[in-house]
Simulated scan of single mutants.
Amino acid sequence: MIYKNYDYALSLLVQGLSSLIMGLNPRQISYKIIDSGTMGDKLHIDTREQWVYTADPYSLTRDARYVIIGDRYGYKIESIKILDNSTVSQMDSDFVERKKGSTTERLFSMDDIPQAKRLKGEGRIASSYASDVDLE
């Protein structure tokens, strides 16, 4: 859930679901509604979300289903179910990898970058996001 004010974000959740509000890292930077529908008297909204760390080489793309219920003040999130996710990271290794489910794929290592393109001294790949790149 993208939020700027913790108290306001809490007001959008059914009581007891405050653990669904993430801290600063990773943080959600975008979302896209990919489907919606009803399940009995409840509304569900499926989203594709992009999450990143501030300075760490980590990017998460996840699909999530938000179950929404109405109350006298409007709507609240009753639950969030993760439907699918894929990460691209270089957290504890010298290579960048993609994880999707139980599958891990090595994308490239620092040694794959031509010497002329590398920074002098120690370096790492920082996280980035490009809206025209499909991570699936």
Rank of each mutant, 00 (worst) to 15 (best):
A64Q: 09
G101I: 01
E49P: 02
K117V: 04
E122K: 10
S102R: 08
L60W: 02
S93R: 05
R62S: 08
K100T: 13
Q90H: 02
K99C: 12
K32S: 15
R98P: 04
A116H: 07
L83G: 12
D41R: 03
Q115C: 08
Q50W: 05
S89D: 07
G16S: 00
A130P: 09
N5S: 07
Q90Y: 01
E78M: 03
Y6R: 06
I29H: 07
L17F: 10
Q50T: 12
E49M: 05
V88N: 06
D134M: 15
A116S: 15
Q15V: 00
E105M: 08
G37K: 09
G16F: 00
P57V: 02
G123D: 10
W51M: 08
G70V: 00
V67Y: 04
E105W: 13
A130F: 13
A9H: 06
D46Y: 14
E97R: 12
G40A: 04
G74H: 00
Q115Y: 14
Y6P: 02
Y6E: 15
R106G: 09
S18F: 03
D94R: 06
Y53V: 00
E49K: 07
S59M: 06
S79Q: 08
R48A: 07
I125Y: 04
L10V: 05
Q90M: 15
T61M: 08
S18W: 02
S59D: 00
S131F: 14
I34E: 04
D35P: 01
D41V: 01
S131N: 07
